[in-house]
């Protein structure tokens, strides 16, 4: 379904028109054993906690979902209407798999699942996110997180 050929023409051409910056000087960190990974999740689904303020359509900031946050407290507040929301309606792990990650920590597949996971508004122009992405990287370092799984929608 996410194959471009399966999309209607207007959606396919919209996706093909989106700019994708390149990183000629990209960093690549050394491999790390899975059993030593301390992992946080970052979604771009514009997630919000039920009682928090709405996520604005061009927000460059990120939201935190700490261990007090249950799946029933998490909502999608993304600007786009062009992605499936039925999966999230049925199962929050199909977008933010924090229970799946926790199970991987419980059977020692990974060293630890982060207590806190994160979400950006994926509709925001990517270049506007750099400052807060770097701030988040520092926050993750301070929390002794060494691995991140990013989950665009």
């Amino acid at each position: 379904m996410a194959r471009l050929n399966d999309m209607v023409e207007s959606q396919r051409s919209h996706i093909e028109s989106l700019s994708c910056p390149t990183f000629p000087q990209a960093v690549f960190s050394a491999p790390r054993p899975l059993s030593k990974c301390r992992v946080a999740l970052i979604s771009s689904a514009g997630l919000m906690r039920r009682n928090d303020e709405n996520v604005s359509g061009n927000s460059d900031d990120y939201r935190r979902f700490d261990k007090t946050c249950q799946n029933r407290d998490i909502l999608i507040n993304h600007l786009s209407i062009n992605f499936d929301r039925t999966a999230f309606a049925e199962d929050a792990n199909s977008v933010l798999p924090k229970d799946i990650l926790k199970s991987m920590a419980e059977d020692d597949t990974i060293e630890r699942a982060s207590d806190t996971h994160y979400s950006f508004m994926g509709a925001t122009a990517p270049e506007l996110l750099q400052k807060n992405a770097e701030r988040l990287a520092q926050e993750l370092t301070d929390l002794n997180i060494n691995t991140v799984c990013l989950l665009p929608v």
Partner: peptide
């Protein structure tokens, strides 16, 4: 940007 901080992504 996160990889630049030494975090595997």
């Amino acid at each position: 940007w996160i990889e630049q901080a030494g975090i595997n992504t």
